Simulated assay, not measured.
Amino acid sequence: MSTGVDNGQVEADLAAFLNERTGEQWPGDRDLFADGGLSSLFAMELVVHLENTYDVTVAGPDLQLANFRTVTAMADLVQRLREAR
């Protein structure tokens, strides 16, 4: 479990995870949905990955598409959830 990681490191870790799972590079601003990087099943796997890796809970209003559209958006979500604890 990662703790105390800055937003840039979260972005790098998420990009590496996505690269490993999809075989493609995912810069911070690349739209995962528009570019075919995420299916609905993989999106759920990604939620579980964020929760397990960064010790956050993604629920309710945080499950909106905008929070998962890009690597940067997901890193921002992780930071926001950590700060809310």
Rank of each mutant, 00 (worst) to 15 (best):
Q25P: 00
V56L: 00
H49V: 02
L46V: 06
L63K: 06
L32Q: 08
A43Q: 09
R21C: 00
A75D: 00
D6W: 01
L50Q: 05
A43S: 14
G36L: 07
E20R: 10
F33Q: 11
G37F: 04
R82A: 07
Q25M: 11
E83C: 07
G23R: 03
R85S: 07
P61V: 10
A75N: 11
G36C: 12
A66Y: 08
L63A: 13
W26E: 01
G36P: 12
R85N: 12
S2W: 09
V71R: 03
V5A: 10
L18A: 03
L46M: 08
T70L: 11
E51L: 02
A34W: 04
R80H: 11
E51G: 02
A43W: 09
T3E: 15
E51N: 07
V10H: 00
L38E: 02
D29G: 14
E20P: 01
T3D: 14
L41I: 11
T72P: 02
Q25D: 12
L50N: 07
V48L: 07
G60M: 05
W26L: 05
N19T: 15
R85I: 01
G37A: 06
A15C: 03
F68Q: 07
A66M: 08
A66K: 15
D76A: 15
E20F: 03
N7W: 05
F68T: 10
V56K: 00
V47M: 05
L77K: 01
E11C: 13
V56F: 00
F33M: 08
S39I: 02
D13M: 12
L38I: 05
V78G: 03
L41R: 11
E51A: 04
T57Q: 12
T22Q: 06
D62Q: 13
F68Y: 12
L77S: 08
D35M: 10
Q9K: 13
R85Q: 09
N7M: 14
V71F: 04
N7K: 15
D6C: 06
A66D: 12
E20I: 06
M1G: 15
D62V: 08
R69S: 11
T53I: 00
S39W: 00
A34I: 06
Q79W: 01
F42Q: 10
D55A: 10
N7I: 15
M74P: 00
A66E: 12
R30D: 09
H49C: 04
W26D: 00
P27C: 07
T22D: 09
L81E: 03
D62F: 09
A43R: 06
L18H: 03
V5G: 08
D76R: 03
V58C: 04
E24M: 15
Q25A: 15
D13L: 15
M74D: 05
P61Q: 07
M1T: 13
M1N: 13
A66S: 14
V71G: 05
V47P: 08
E20A: 14
M1C: 11
W26R: 02
A66N: 12
Q25T: 14
A75I: 05
G8R: 13
V78T: 06
L14W: 04
P61W: 04
L46R: 05
V47D: 06
Y54M: 03
A73H: 07
E83P: 04
L41E: 03
